[in-house]
C-alpha cells in the first residue's frame, strides 16, 4: 500500500513539474512601483501575446534589481535611479539603457503638517523645515530608487539626517506609506504608489510638496551585458526594451490608468 502510493505521488509530482516549463521565459527585475501599480500586468500580456515569451517580473527595490542584473540572475531591468543606472552601465554590467517613462516624487505627510511645509514647491526648503522642527520622517532605508533619491535630496539640503525624528524602515514603498500613515510621519514617495494607496482609502496622508524639478523620476530599461554573462537572453531582453519604447508600448503606457488616475507618462509622450 505504502510503496504503491509513494510511486504514485512521485509520478504525480513529476507530471506537475514537467507541466510548468513550456514557455521561454524572460526574467525582468523591476521596482515595486511598476509591479504593484498594475502597470506590468497591463503591459506584459501584450508583449507575451506578440512574442510568445513569458515575462517573469521580480519586484524588488532598484538597488537590488541592479544587483540581480550584475550577478546575471535576470535578463533585463526596469528601474528608476538615473545615477546608479549610469554607474551600472559604466562598470560594464548593462548595455543599451533606454528611457521608458517618468513620473515624479512627492513629499507626503499628515494633514496636521507640524513642519508647515504645505504648498512649498522648493523641496530643499521643505526638507530643511522638517529637520528644523524634528518632525517625524520615515525613510525607506532600503537602497531603493526612492531611497537613493531621498539621500541625494538630503545631501543637497546640506543635512545629514539623524536623530529620533529620522527613521529608516528598510521596507518597500507601500509599507513605508502605511507606517507613515499610522505614525503621522512625513516621507518621500513616488506618485504612483501614493495614488494607488490613497485612492483605495488605505492611507490619510496628503501631498505637501510637489513640482520641484529635482523630484523628476525617470524610469529606464537596461539589458544585462551579454559579454559579462553569455547565457542571458539578450535578444529577448532587447525585444522587450524595444517593445516598451515602441510607439505601441509608449501609447499603452500613456493610456494606463489606475482608479482613473494617470500614474506614468511615456518618455516619448506628446
Amino acid at each position: 500500500m505504502k510503496s504503491y502510493s509513494l510511486i504514485l505521488s512521485i509520478l504525480l509530482y513529476g507530471f506537475l513539474v514537467s507541466s510548468v516549463a513550456a514557455y521561454e521565459r524572460l526574467k525582468l527585475a523591476t521596482t515595486t512601483s511598476t509591479a504593484n501599480s498594475g502597470l506590468l500586468n497591463y503591459l506584459n500580456p501584450v508583449f507575451e501575446e506578440k512574442s510568445g515569451v513569458r515575462v517573469d517580473a521580480i519586484a524588488v527595490g532598484t538597488g537590488k534589481a541592479l544587483k540581480l542584473g550584475q550577478n546575471g540572475d535576470v535578463d533585463v531591468m526596469l528601474v528608476h535611479a538615473r545615477e546608479a543606472e549610469e554607474t551600472f552601465i559604466k562598470e560594464g554590467h548593462g548595455v543599451n539603457r533606454k528611457d521608458v517613462m517618468y513620473n515624479d516624487f512627492i513629499i507626503v505627510g499628515p494633514a496636521s503638517d507640524s513642519a508647515g511645509i504645505n504648498g512649498m514647491d522648493d523641496v530643499i526648503l521643505a526638507l530643511r523645515k522638517i529637520s528644523e522642527k524634528s518632525s517625524l520622517w520615515f525613510s525607506r532605508g532600503d537602497d531603493s530608487g526612492t531611497h537613493k533619491k531621498e539621500m541625494i535630496l538630503w545631501k543637497e539640503s546640506a543635512i545629514s539626517p539623524s536623530g529620533n525624528w529620522y527613521r529608516g524602515l528598510g521596507q518597500g514603498m507601500g509599507k513605508t506609506l502605511l507606517a507613515a500613515d499610522e505614525k503621522g510621519a512625513y516621507t518621500l514617495t513616488d506618485r504612483g504608489t501614493f495614488i494607488a494607496l490613497s485612492t483605495g482609502n488605505k492611507i490619510g496622508l496628503i501631498i505637501l510638496s510637489e513640482g520641484d524639478s529635482r523630484l523628476f523620476n525617470p524610469y529606464g530599461a537596461i539589458a544585462v551585458n551579454p559579454e559579462r554573462h553569455p547565457y542571458v537572453k539578450y535578444k529577448l531582453a532587447m525585444k522587450y526594451i524595444n517593445f516598451l519604447t515602441s510607439t505601441e508600448g509608449q501609447s499603452l503606457i500613456a493610456r494606463f490608468r489606475m482608479k482613473g488616475k494617470i500614474l506614468f507618462h511615456p518618455h516619448n509622450g506628446s
Binding site: D56, A57, I58, G174, L197, G200
Partner: peptide, 21 residues
C-alpha cells in the same frame, strides 16, 4: 522571486497584499 502565476505562493502573495495595504 514572487513571480505571478509561476513562483507566487500563498504566503508570498499575502506578503505582497500586506505591502499594498
Amino acid at each position: 522571486g514572487n513571480i505571478e502565476g509561476y513562483t507566487r505562493t500563498l504566503t508570498t502573495a499575502i506578503a505582497l497584499e500586506s505591502m499594498k495595504g
